[in-house]
Amino acid sequence: MSPSDQISIPPEALGHPLIDMLNLHRFIFCPGCLIGTVITSITSCLKERGLTSKDYAIVSGIGCTGRSSGCFKAPAFHTTHGRAIPFATGIKLANPKLKVIVLSGDGDLFAIGGNHFIHAARRNAEITVLCINNNIYGMTGGQVAPTSQIGDITSTTPYGNVEPPFNLVSLAAAAGATYVARWPGYDTLRLQKSIFKCIDNQGFSFIEVLAPCFVQYGSKNRLGDAVEMLEWLKKQVRIKVDWPPHQATFDFKKGIIICGEFVEEEQEGFSKKIEQLRIKAQNKKIDKLIKDSE
């Protein structure tokens, strides 16, 4: 029996509601990896808001999650390592009508691109940053990441990691993000609600999505396959309401990961402020004052 005889449903019967918004041939992720789930969550949120490819742009950096921008049928940019946020800032400032979504990994956003992250949060650029946190560098072969826990075995820490990790939620909140949330990747309902809030938010929004990497992190730390790792993650996740961001514990050793929405505030976005600056600059009197002072 040839494999082609076994197709249970003819391909034309597949009318997945998101099929028009995604490029299926660019889904290159390992079976069971939650990156695909996050992509479909974002897409279904965009679809439900009635946004089409002229309303949004997707930017990603390098790494496993870096390859995710190609999955969207939209203006999608796969930039250099760590530079997804500046690229997105450029797009947003040049065309403030666009919803700009940055989708990248923990190494890309917080190691090589850490500086860009805190500064984009500080200036409240109206971009949505989704960090898919797998606590390791997946694509390069499982090296230690700024989110790897103390004691983790990776290919560059064979005796166990000795560096304390970043707490991404606390970092984002301290840097001035106006929306901060952390969700496990399997909790798609809550994740989608969060993404809706990000799309509507007039400021820098950040969601940390936990998507354990069973190929690199799981195998090196003996945590099992994709499903077993989700089971392991699920045991640790505690969902809290109105929890302060500095107490958003993320600790595999204690077995506590606090999830929820930590920051939700309204602040004027950066491109609005640029708009006001233009009005000020086009006022001839002020220009003359500047000229005189020079």
Partner: peptide, 13 residues
């Protein structure tokens, strides 16, 4: 629709 939302390969709806 838990399975539809979770499916990482857009193969189930």
């Amino acid at each position: 629709r838990q399975c539809e939302r979770l499916c990482p390969t857009v193969s189930l709806y």
